[in-house]
Design a protein around this nucleic acid. Structure first.
Lengths: 193, 193
DNA sequence: CCAATTTTGTAACGACCATTCCACTTTTTA
DNA sequence: TAAAAAGTGGAATGGTCGTTACAAAATTGG
């Protein structure tokens, strides 16, 4: 093992690529745009990551890692189950309303754009969903045991219903980025638990 | 007004274009694919519709018209409010699980892909959402008056919560096309009303 | 210091992109 | 029946796509 050392930090490049893909989607992102966004030349990019598709997969993995980390941090706080579930939704609203962030959730978009065409993308997204579903189910169980949540439905079902509400919120946040609209969704979703 | 008459039915062409865009998205659809899908030559397509973007807008409008029509038909049935709301969600599940239909909801995808970049697309999607929200709000009001639904939340909020559940269902249907998973979402969403 | 090895930027590749052009056909009008 | 008008398919346009080729640069081991 020898040769010229890399002149960039692979993690930083993936982060930069993530930003580009996040903003323009997979099909809407060109190799040219990736070079400009990362500061690397084509040679370096292709030598290090192989192809646009593989770089996208790494960028999506990074996005999901960061997202899961942030969401689990919220769900692990020392607070009531109800407050934590509300906090997660409000975190989603903040992301949807951020004016510096004229772009939808990269995960959502990758599901609709790439899940059917890229098996690796599908695996990344499936793994993320499994993790978040498992944590939410634990939380619903905890809430039921503490008497915070209704017990006429299994925790699994509560978790899945909440997930639908959450992703629906994220989608509608793209169409109707109005706090009042999104807050109605949160209040309704929480009221039924 | 004279000249050679068109040798195609504009509506049929828009329907065919809708199918192509539905399957491949906006960026993933080429003029070539549109010609093959519609049977028209490039000359005719551009002469009649102006550009790929304008054709997409017409195709999306058609998609939303058909979708709204089908959904309102369900919501206007002679049945209990609860049954009608459940029927709409089950209609969504059927669409998500249809194996002949390896494609996500065109409306969802157009929101994430094009809402920020094409004002006309945004207007089409906004109009659709307004219509469906209005109808759902009426339905929630009706359900409350009949004593079918809880009355501790305003109908507007119930409608918006249901919408989030519905679109979350459609998104998750792309990632987890399993009847059991989606049925949990329906049961949970309905149980809270 | 000289291979061997790896990374770098850039030029170049063929393919395909959305769109325009155009000669030709089919119609209406006069 | 000739001129005008509108539509037709297909060739051609300039541009951009993702990817590769390659020579120069930077490192290591001997």
């Amino acid at each position: 093992m020898s040769g010229r050392p890399r002149q960039f930090d692979a993690q930083a490049v993936i982060d930069a690529a993530m930003e580009v893909f996040w903003q323009h989607g997979y099909e809407g992102t060109s190799a040219q745009a990736l070079c400009e966004g990362t500061g690397l030349g084509r040679g370096s990019l292709y030598n290090a990551f192989g192809s646009k598709q593989q770089l996208f997969e790494q960028a999506l993995r990074r996005y999901q890692d960061l997202g899961l980390q942030a969401q689990l941090e919220i769900l692990n706080r020392d607070d009531s189950v109800r407050h934590r579930l509300r906090a997660l939704m409000e975190w989603g609203i903040t992301a949807d309303l951020d004016p510096n962030c004229q772009r939808s959730c990269m995960a959502l978009r990758s599901v609709l754009e790439r899940n059917h065409q890229d098996l690796v993308v599908k695996r990344i997204n499936d793994a993320y969903l499994d993790r978040i579903e498992r944590r939410l189910t634990e939380l619903m169980t905890e809430g039921q045991q503490l008497g915070e949540l209704r017990t006429d439905q299994p925790p699994r079902q509560l978790a899945r219903g909440y997930m639908a509400g959450y992703y629906g919120l994220r989608v509608l946040g793209q169409s109707r980025p109005e706090r009042e609209f999104l807050t109605d969704i949160v209040n309704d979703t929480l009221a039924r638990l």
